[in-house]
């Protein structure tokens, strides 16, 4: 999300500053089965991205003010949405119709289909096309990622007031940023993209659970724990 102009908004500046550097995929070489190799590489990447995401969440202004129970609930509900904002962002500029999970892990439709991820491919291309058409800025992308986590509608909320303040802080930051650009409709448009993001994340979670159960694809402990929370 590198950007030459430092946002004057404190929250967005912090989000830009703490946005983790993109991870590279470690190519799995434990099998000769190409589609299984793709899946294992992807799952390893996801597991490491999750670890980074948890560290990142702690740096979102307001997140550490939530109770530990609520921090856990938000991450358990919203982790896939937050990760997919990153995938959609990276895939915007991709040549052809690839999904860019990492700089060295770009999957086209045929590769996704072979790996059992045809459904996910379609949903993620739809999301990517939407953000590309909106010409999302780096400030918007990092804020949307934080908003997705804050708005993840966890089942049980320990301290609703703190959560509301956390959400309001991010919402205000986005509104202030868009007002400074004289873009009065952008905040609403971005928030209106959240249902598609939720739907895409649900499909992604189902796809990985299905692969784990039906094809017995082994998953790392953290990824499995987070999928189980779904």
């Amino acid at each position: 999300y590198s950007h030459p102009v430092i946002s004057r908004n404190r929250v967005i500046s912090q989000l830009l500053l703490t946005e983790p550097a993109p991870l590279a995929a470690n190519q799995d070489d434990s099998t000769n089965d190409g589609s299984l190799r793709t899946l294992l590489t992807l799952c390893d990447l996801l597991n490491r991205e999750l670890l980074v995401l948890i560290g990142w969440a702690k740096q979102i202004p307001g997140f550490s003010g939530l109770s530990l129970v609520d921090q856990m609930s938000l991450l358990q509900s919203g982790w896939m949405e937050a990760l997919l904002v990153g995938v959609a962002w990276r895939s915007q500029g991709a040549a052809g119709e690839e999904l860019v999970f990492a700089g060295n892990l770009r999957l086209d439709e045929a590769q996704c289909r072979a790996a059992g991820l045809a459904d996910l491919y379609e949903a993620l291309r739809h999301l990517t096309a939407k953000y590309k058409a909106m010409n999302l800025s780096p400030e918007e992308a990092v804020t949307l990622k934080a908003v997705a986590l804050a708005n993840s509608d966890a089942d049980q909320v320990d301290c609703p007031d703190s959560l509301q303040r956390f959400q309001d802080g991010l919402h205000e930051a986005l509104q202030e940023y868009e007002a400074s650009r004289r873009e009065q409709h952008r905040t609403g448009r971005l928030l209106m993209s959240l249902p598609l993001l939720r739907q895409t994340a649900d499909r992604a979670v189902q796809a990985f659970l299905r692969l784990h159960r039906r094809r017995c694809v082994p998953l790392h402990k953290l990824l499995l724990e987070m999928l189980d929370a779904k």
């Binding site: 597991n47 670890l51 948890i54 560290g55 702690k58 530990l68 921090q71 856990m72 991450l75 358990q76 790392h220 402990k221 953290l222 724990e225 987070m226 189980d228 929370a229």
Partner: peptide, 20 residues
């Protein structure tokens, strides 16, 4: 909490190594 122990450990910034 027991079921989600890795997440719990990571959020608590545990200094003990986390088995991922």
């Amino acid at each position: 909490k027991e079921k989600h122990k890795i997440l719990h450990q990571l959020l608590q910034n545990s200094t003990s190594p986390v088995d991922l």
